[in-house]
């Protein structure tokens, strides 16, 4: 199984520990993983701003970088969803090979246990593109049999206490350039999500997308709250130091 590691541009630059956790987690599960060195951005920020056409070259670059891999795995539901859509537009064979890390672990690897420990109260932020786009879990709006891939994985972690939220999958208001172009609403949405986690006693907020967590973390730090954010791969990989 040849695995290409896709690390979103902002994770590469600002959250190297998330890339490292993703890589280590996959290696612990016995996989051979390579990180193609010339990757940059999937093109989503431009596309969501109305400039989808500007991403054409970026998708070509993605195909070149990852063409020799059977699976491409990334720690982001949002970027992976965008890649899947764009790759299927250009009829690339990679469209079916790109996976968000949690769905890869549950659906392809069928992971049943993880040796990690994380003795904290954890609130899960269900990022919208992973949730509603990739169906990592059943969205609360739908009358369907419930499934929850990130939750299934987190429940394998020793000592973890998952907290129930009042609104279990409401958007945090990051939304890419929305966070800046609709600053006031974005901040209010994020503040309200934090309040929900706080009211239910979360010590750590985790999720599948560092972008939402970056937004929430920015608010938490400014509001001097004692809640930390961690990407789900950090917890699954056994990083149990909460900074």
């Amino acid at each position: 199984m040849k695995i290409g590691l896709f690390i979103p541009c902002y994770v590469d630059q600002f959250y190297p520990q998330v890339g490292i956790a993703t890589l280590q987690l996959l290696e612990k599960l016995g996989l051979e993983v390579n990180y193609p060195l010339n990757q940059t951005c999937c093109g989503q920020p431009m596309a969501n701003s109305g400039f989808e056409y500007k991403g054409e070259n970026l998708i070509k670059m993605f195909e070149e970088n990852f063409q020799k891999y059977q699976y491409v795995i990334g720690p982001s539901g949002s970027c992976v969803m965008h890649l899947k859509e764009q790759l299927s537009h250009v009829k690339s064979h990679l469209a079916d090979g790109v996976f968000e890390i949690c769905e890869f672990l549950t659906d392809i690897l069928n992971v049943k246990e993880l040796p990690s420990e994380f003795p904290y109260r954890v609130g899960v932020h269900s990022s919208c593109h992973g949730l509603r786009g990739l169906r990592l879990a059943t969205p609360s709006e739908l009358n369907e049999n419930p499934s929850d891939k990130p939750g299934t994985l987190l429940k394998m972690i020793k000592g973890i206490q998952l907290v129930d939220l009042n609104r279990k999958d409401e958007c945090c208001g990051f939304g890419g350039t929305f966070a800046v172009s609709e600053e006031a609403v974005s901040v209010k949405m994020g503040t309200d999500r934090i309040r929900d986690h706080e009211l239910n006693g979360a010590e750590v907020i985790t999720g599948t997308d560092m972008s939402c967590l970056m937004h929430l973390d920015g608010l938490l730090k400014r509001q001097k709250k004692n809640i930390r954010v961690m990407h789900i791969t950090e917890i699954l990989n056994g990083n149990n130091e909460v900074k």
Partner: peptide, 11 residues
């Protein structure tokens, strides 16, 4: 652009 594209409306 007054949307985070969360997709709840569609659901």
């Amino acid at each position: 652009f007054a949307s985070s594209l969360c997709g709840s409306c569609t659901n």
